[in-house]
Nucleic acid binder design. Structure first.
Lengths: 231, 231
DNA sequence: CGCGGCGTTGATCTCTGTCAATACTTGTGG
DNA sequence: CCACAAGTATTGACAGAGATCAACGCCGCG
């Protein structure tokens, strides 16, 4: 784990608020691992032993129904931790996790986390902050699925991908469209059509490159009530 | 707060694992409050000062969009705590909470909770367990909304309401149908129709009383793949 | 060159939301 | 005790969004 990696770790809500010593103790001896795309990190129902920090790449976290149908709950990116809360639940992962792209990850054992908390209660506070954030994300996701149409959810997703808030930009889609579709609660066919519906709002697509003429216009579309049609 | 109340408090994941002393210290001096139906406990965006334990009744927790549209995230019941994780987030409630029925509640200040954690780190572990549980509930909710049809979600809701797992039963709907509808991510009209579609599966409704001929049959319907029609 | 995975497009169907009209409940005041 | 009003639930007709099924195009790879 080099300096850049370490900086990413320190940028997470979990590690950011900890003292340097404590943070170092948590990741001590855990080298960064590089995973190919499509590697299962853990499976729903398996004993929850580890949690993860994403240094690079994207990790999809999803639930599998009895009939095999997958529901993507979230796709984690650089600077995010995941599965850390699970360590304190029932001992089993309630979701599965798989790398959606080639990834650079740090894996930390739950035992070490628990030990750390016992020795330094401040760690628990960081954990709580981090977990609360995840809660909020999920709540927002539920709201989004209820209120917004497929094109709106897609537009929101695109806007979120880009740090800047207005002007034109070109975005490289970070992972497969079918995964984006699932993450947004729709089928791949609907994603295609949603992209088409965004064309009038200055969005054009070529392969994985999405060009947005004016981010502000897209944001406005996201905020649009259902009142007026999409065209 | 009488003995029965205290037992309910101790039945929550948050208080259950704590020592008697610590648990008592947390709720010390906080009498049970009785609220009418329709009382706002806190509003989205307000500074997060308190969290709650439900001793009796039901509390709806929801998000309000800029256009006023409400999305019910969860409806909490006896023996559940809510908003405890929020205390550690950004200082503001990300959701609103309102009593859905007449309620008996305990309100506990975040400051006291933080003090307790500082003095007794074990509290943090209970908090994490409790928060993780909430996370899991939300994840399951997202999955449910993606995978299941309106009638299936309703059937699942009914089954969850009843402790027993099979045989016949009659359930009193715990709160308004319009709230159930929102909680299940549908409109009241759809709820009516969903109830009608469950009739062939041995479900009949009179006022607020839902009679189920055979719980097992309903559960089976919930698990049913989309393959065969609803009839 | 042909194969396989992924994405797009088109036709169709189903479910749910919307709008509107009608019951049913409850509470109020005469 | 009844009449009326307000809130809540049901029902019907209709429209639109998204799912499904199927066909095709695109691209990378052996």
């Amino acid at each position: 784990m080099d300096t850049a990696d370490w900086q990413i770790v320190r940028s997470t809500p979990l590690f950011g608020a900890l003292s340097r010593d404590t943070a170092e103790r948590l990741v001590e001896g855990q080298g960064a691992r590089v995973c190919d795309k499509g590697v299962m990190l853990f499976e729903q129902g398996a004993p929850a032993e580890f949690f993860y920090v994403v240094l690079a790449g994207w990790v999809k976290v999803f639930r599998v129904a009895t009939d095999g149908q997958e529901t993507v709950v979230h796709v984690f990116r650089q600077g995010e931790t995941f599965a850390e809360a699970v360590i304190f639940m029932g001992g089993r992962y309630p979701v599965s996790a798989e790398t959606a792209t080639t990834c650079r990850l740090v894996r930390i054992s739950g035992k070490r986390l628990r030990d750390c908390i016992r020795d330094e209660p401040e760690v628990a506070l960081s954990m709580l902050a981090s977990t609360s954030r995840h809660l909020k994300v999920l709540v927002e996701q539920i709201e989004q699925m209820n209120r917004m149409s497929a094109p709106q959810r897609l537009a929101d997703f695109l806007v979120q991908l880009h740090p800047r808030s207005d002007g034109p930009c070109t975005i490289e889609l970070p992972f497969e469209k079918s995964l984006i579709a699932n993450r947004l609660g729709m089928k791949p066919e609907s994603l295609s059509r949603a992209l088409a519906k965004l064309r009038p709002f200055g969005v054009s697509v070529l392969r994985d490159a999405v060009t947005i003429e004016e981010l502000g216009r897209l944001q406005q579309f996201v905020a649009t009530e259902v009142e007026d049609g999409v065209g």
